[in-house]
């Protein structure tokens, strides 16, 4: 208990918000990086497929966006945009921290998993460029779990205070 008291409620909440943002951004950075690397191989041969490769590369980037959206929503709940943040009790702070966990992990790991699908879909761009939308659709399936994590986090944040 003393350990947590060192942080204070607000400190705990901020740890959660930071986790939500940073984990998602790490996942997205790794993900877009992986797809980007795969894309350069195709682009060196057929530069005209740039747009298709870019769309695939952008897909694992959305988790970063979800992370910042969740973090932002948490700050919003804490009152940061409506008259300043009020002090939190330990349990309130802990609630916000826990509420941020779904998107922190869901975003991070789904970005990595989606990146692998997107990187493999670069092969479709190379071999059958007209069918690349199917690769995008496969990536969309993975995206859903980031969306679910975001929805979970938001639902919990709405009830955190």
């Amino acid at each position: 208990m003393e350990f947590f008291e060192m942080f204070g409620g607000l400190g705990l909440a901020f740890i959660g918000i930071a986790l939500a943002i940073v984990m998602c951004c790490i996942g997205s950075a790794k993900g877009t990086g992986l797809v980007g690397e795969a894309a350069t191989g195709v682009l060196s041969e057929t530069p005209e497929h740039f747009t298709k490769c870019m769309i695939l590369e952008a897909l694992p980037g959305t988790q970063g966006l979800y992370g910042i959206a969740a973090g932002f929503f948490a700050l919003f709940v804490l009152g940061a945009f409506s008259g300043g943040i009020v002090p939190l009790t330990l349990s309130q702070g802990m609630s916000v921290l826990i509420a941020c966990i779904p998107i922190a992990f869901g975003g991070w790991l789904s970005a990595k998993a989606q990146a692998r699908v997107a990187a493999a879909s670069i092969n479709i761009v190379a071999k059958k460029p007209d069918d690349y939308m199917k690769g995008v659709i496969l990536c969309g399936i993975v995206e859903f779990y980031a969306i679910l994590s975001l929805v979970g986090t938001i639902l919990m944040l709405m009830n955190a205070l």
Partner: peptide
Amino acid sequence: MALMMAGAIIAQVFNTL
């Protein structure tokens, strides 16, 4: 439901930001 909510929330976040 999930997609309906996620879309609405992300739009709100951008607007509020």
